[in-house]
Amino acid sequence: MGRENSKIIELQGRKFEIKKFDAFTGGYIIFQLFEKFMPMGLENKIPLQNDKTMNEVLPQNRTGMTKAEFISFMKDCLSAAGEVLPARTAPIINENGTWGIMDIKDNTLLAVLLVIHVLTFNVADFFSASGLKELQQAIQGISLANLKI
């Protein structure tokens, strides 16, 4: 069975299609989560081996997001979603960054719920125990002796 690349969800009586990020966007989003969202206390919720948390592993000089960074982050997430309409699936965010579905721009709850669904669909496996374990093993397997400077 192949990897699921999209799914349909229902929010506020409407249907939306959530798609997978491309690898570049997904990597960017994950690094943004580590650098910008983890300072909000989320790092304490992610268990690692030896009873450590992400907070003990991540750098302590991380900062929160500016409003512009947060808007950009939301647009990146919402660009992976579209509303399923009878004739087509309309993008939530157009390629030029403008709203594709105008009534969502004034519906904070719906926009935030869509972002949460997009993030869950796209990065949940990365933050699962096996995903974090695989990342940790890969990082631990990097030897400075093998690097040519």
Rank of each mutant, 00 (worst) to 15 (best):
K105I: 10
G141W: 00
K148V: 15
A111R: 04
L42V: 05
Q49T: 12
K133F: 00
F21K: 04
D103G: 00
W99M: 00
K20H: 04
T98W: 03
I116T: 15
L78E: 06
S128K: 01
G64Y: 08
V112N: 12
M102Q: 15
Q49C: 08
Q60E: 00
N122D: 14
A145H: 14
S79E: 09
E17I: 00
F21Y: 14
F37S: 05
E10A: 03
E134S: 09
P39S: 03
P86N: 01
A138S: 13
D76Y: 15
Q137K: 14
N107Y: 15
P59I: 07
T98Y: 07
P86A: 00
L114C: 10
P39V: 00
Q32N: 08
T53C: 05
L48A: 06
L113T: 09
L119F: 14
A124E: 06
I9N: 08
N146F: 11
M102D: 13
R3M: 03
S143W: 13
R62D: 03
G141R: 09
P47Q: 03
P86Y: 02
L33W: 10
N5Y: 12
L114D: 14
F127D: 12
D125Y: 06
Q136Y: 11
I46G: 02
E10C: 11
S128M: 10
E69H: 07
M65E: 07
K7T: 06
Q140I: 12
K148F: 10
E35W: 14
H117V: 01
A80K: 04
L109F: 06
M1F: 08
F127Q: 05
D125C: 00
H117K: 11
I92V: 15
A87K: 09
S72M: 14
R3C: 09
S130A: 05
P39M: 03
E4Q: 12
E10N: 07
S130I: 07
Q49W: 15
G131E: 05
I30P: 03
G100E: 13
R3I: 09
K19D: 08
L58W: 08
A87V: 05
V112G: 02
F126Y: 11
I93V: 13
S72F: 07
T63Y: 02
G100M: 06
L114E: 09
I8H: 10
W99A: 02
A23E: 11
V57I: 11
